[in-house]
Amino acid sequence: MSSTLPERLLPTLQSDDVIALASGQEVAVRLYGRKKTGEASPLVVHFHGGAFISGDLDNGCTVAHLFEAVGARVVSVAYPLAPEHPFPQPLEIGYGVLQWAFKHRTRLAGKGAQVYLAGEEAGGNLAAGVCMMARDQRHPPLAGQILLSPMLDPCVGTPSLRAATGSATDCKWAQGWLQFLRSACDAVHPYAVPSTAQRLAGLPPTLMLVGLNDPMRDEALAYAGRLEAAGLSVTRHVFDKAQQWPDALLTPDPRPCPCAQEVQEQFQQFFAATRCRPPDLIS
């Protein structure tokens, strides 16, 4: 299959297809939104959640639709799941889709479209890891990363997560990490666990969104704090009325997700704040 963007993807608000990466691999994606005549839209490469071991494009539709609602074009990725496809395979696929999206950014979102990475729960981890890959490869340039309740701590022992799981000795997040990481070496690799990376310089601006009673709250805010301490631009927001995050973000449901209006406002503000970047970032 050709890696050229099929014309039939352009007229619809949502469409599924399979794209060919530079590596020769084929990946299913779902595109949201529509290219606007004469203007550029934010182009978001998006990763759904599911604790690395479950989930599909349908589970990513809630967050993808929120991006679409504020005018972004979204490429949602059906990345391979553990345990059949542990680290680094999901990230390699994700980076390949990012390269593909950047190559086709003008046709997808207009001339000068800026590219973002985004994800919720395990998808937030993948977005953060792919962001580091792009920095280290010096391509493609990114305008920002948007992380919603990202799953970042393989120790699975933060106070917010313990509060959510109670006295349980196991949980889906612990199982997900066990299946995603093949060895102790993987557990200290910055692409697998971005929150423990020793080098944070050079990463783009970050938008970090969590719920007040979110199991992922503490690990997400700790990572935001590390990024800030490294001198990077970070915007964080805690939704005090978000119920059952991150699970509510992963449910294919036609009803608006919790705090939908607030989430969209955060997206809009972040896109506006990162719109004027140096010319080399949008070349």
Rank of each mutant, 00 (worst) to 15 (best):
R34E: 14
K35H: 11
T37V: 09
T37S: 09
G38W: 12
S41E: 11
L43T: 06
L43W: 03
V44S: 06
V45A: 01
A51Q: 05
A51L: 05
F52E: 00
F52K: 03
G55C: 07
D56K: 04
L57S: 03
G60E: 01
C61A: 11
T62K: 11
T62R: 08
V63I: 15
V63M: 13
V63T: 14
A64Y: 00
A64D: 05
H65P: 00
H65N: 09
H65S: 12
H65A: 09
A69L: 11
V70E: 05
G71V: 12
V74A: 07
V77E: 05
V77F: 05
A78C: 10
A78V: 03
L81G: 10
A82Q: 04
A82H: 04
E84G: 13
H85A: 15
P86H: 10
P86R: 11
P88W: 09
P88F: 07
P90K: 05
P90I: 03
L91W: 01
L91Q: 07
E92A: 11
I93G: 03
I93P: 00
G94E: 05
G94A: 07
G94F: 03
G94M: 04
Y95S: 09
G96V: 13
V97E: 12
L98F: 04
W100G: 06
F102A: 07
H104G: 04
H104S: 05
R105L: 00
R105D: 02
R105V: 01
R107L: 12
R107E: 14
L108S: 08
A109I: 03
A109F: 04
A109M: 05
G110I: 12
G110P: 08
K111C: 10
G112M: 13
A113D: 08
Q114P: 08
V115T: 14
V115D: 02
V115M: 01
Y116G: 00
A118Y: 01
A118R: 02
G119Y: 08
E121S: 15
E121P: 02
E121G: 11
G124T: 09
L126C: 10
A127T: 10
G129V: 10
G129L: 10
V130N: 04
V130G: 08
C131S: 15
C131H: 06
M132T: 04
M132V: 05
M133Q: 12
A134E: 10
A134V: 07
D136E: 14
H139P: 03
P140W: 09
P140L: 11
P141V: 13
P141D: 10
L142V: 06
L142M: 03
S149A: 14
S149P: 07
S149T: 13
M151Y: 09
D153H: 10
D153G: 06
D153M: 05
D153C: 08
C155H: 14
G157Y: 04
G157K: 12
T158L: 12
T158Y: 13
R162F: 07
A163E: 15
A164Q: 09
A164L: 07
T165I: 13
T169Y: 00
T169P: 00
T169Q: 13
T169F: 00
T169D: 06
C171T: 03
C171E: 01
C171H: 07
K172C: 02
K172H: 08
W173E: 14
Q175D: 03
G176Y: 04
W177H: 04
Q179P: 00
F180Y: 15
F180R: 12
F180W: 09
L181I: 03
R182W: 02
